[in-house]
Write a protein that binds this DNA or RNA. Structure first.
Lengths: 214, 214
DNA sequence: TTCTTGACCTTATAAATTTCAGGTATATAA
DNA sequence: TTATATACCTGAAATTTATAAGGTCAAGAA
């Protein structure tokens, strides 16, 4: 027999620990003392004793009196340094609903604010809108979603933009062809809007991301 | 009362399923029928009946005659496919200040909620705490910062954890040595706390990130 | 109306599981 | 040598847990 070297596990203890670990990965729940005993061909009580030792040495945890509550603590070699990068959150105002007819920049429409990780949206001035309707469903933007818009008067071909047409806000994909400008819905049910020469057309900004609140 | 639509879950069944899901994420093992019953204020037998239905509908699996062997099959939470560019925000309640003596899970202490990108914190159950004091200053955690904690009863050596000692919440680095457990401050001004045999010591969760609001 | 189903309940029972008490044997340290 | 720790054992509690059997009530379908 080998004795334990300080805080090291003995051979037997390691065997029990390995058995538990294997069992959990295979079954998704921890074994009972009896089951461990059967695997190792020893008695429940021996296992029980080992469990106490493993618990004392902080290799496992258990709940007193509760079945199958062994949890494995020290994942043997995984020494991952706790690198906790800080999240930098940017306040983004939610200023309305994108199908609403009212001028959406009015303060009355302020729904609130959300905090978004800066790394997701970059730097700039942003606002958020709640999407109503299904016109962008093929782009993965569903009714009720929030979209974050970066304020900018220009956009490129293919960008999804928030725009004002006749004072109504809408979210569409921008299509710049030779000399025509279209707003394309992402849903066959709707038709492209030709905004080529419309004076009442104005780009509010470019969508940088959608937000789903779980 | 509502009837079930095909293989949809009824309200009750969904409630049971959610309870199981929550229990597992919090404890690391599945609940017994009795425990579910206590949470939902119904009887074991009712729960048992629901478990049979959930199993028949393929939302869970169980091992006949074995304790705590419920496994969740359908991940109920995620239903909508979200595009890669989408941000998934998780609501994280801010439930107090980490130096406060009061039991911090009390609703009275709710400061509000923040929304954090899921990709920054992963899956699980979280809460946030405002840090008071400078005991973790060497870990980059300053007075007034918010820290996000994942609820879990276990932690590994080196993790920064939120713990209760004598009903006081504290944020420290966990040190598991041979057979002693210490909470280490990250500031030379303060001394380690030996919690090896303290009954009033309980791990609330593991810090996953700090939050800075710009 | 009657029938079926879901969601409950009470009362039990049989197994499954943890946990205790008290031994034996062997290895290592003092 | 003697003490101590580990690894086993036998034999039982004492609890936890799953599961059975049978009944009530309400809602919706036939």
């Amino acid at each position: 027999m080998k004795t334990s070297n300080r805080n090291e596990l003995t051979e037997s203890q390691a065997k029990v620990l390995k058995t538990i670990n294997d069992f959990i990965t295979e079954n998704g729940y921890s074994p009972t003392a009896k089951e461990i005993a059967e695997i190792l061909h020893i008695t429940q009580t021996s296992v029980f004793e080992q469990l106490e030792r493993l618990e004392k040495k902080r290799y496992i945890t258990r709940q007193k009196g509760a079945a199958r509550t062994i949890g494995i603590l020290n994942t043997v070699v995984d020494e991952k340094p706790v690198k906790s990068e800080s999240v930098k959150l940017v306040k983004v105002p939610v200023i309305g609903t994108i199908a609403a007819g009212a001028p959406i920049f009015a303060d009355e429409n302020m729904e609130g604010e959300i905090l978004v990780d800066e790394s997701n949206i970059g730097k700039g001035r942003f606002f958020a809108l709640r999407v109503r309707g299904d016109s962008m469903i093929n782009a993965g933007i569903n009714n009720g979603d929030l979209v974050i818009i970066k304020r900018q008067p220009l956009a490129e071909n293919g960008d999804i933009i928030a725009a004002l047409i006749d004072n109504e806000a809408t979210l569409k994909r921008l299509s710049l062809t030779n000399d025509e400008v279209f707003l394309l819905p992402e849903n066959e049910k709707y038709s492209p809007i030709n905004v080529t020469c419309r004076e009442d057309f104005k780009i509010l900004g470019k969508m940088v991301t959608t937000v789903t609140v779980l």
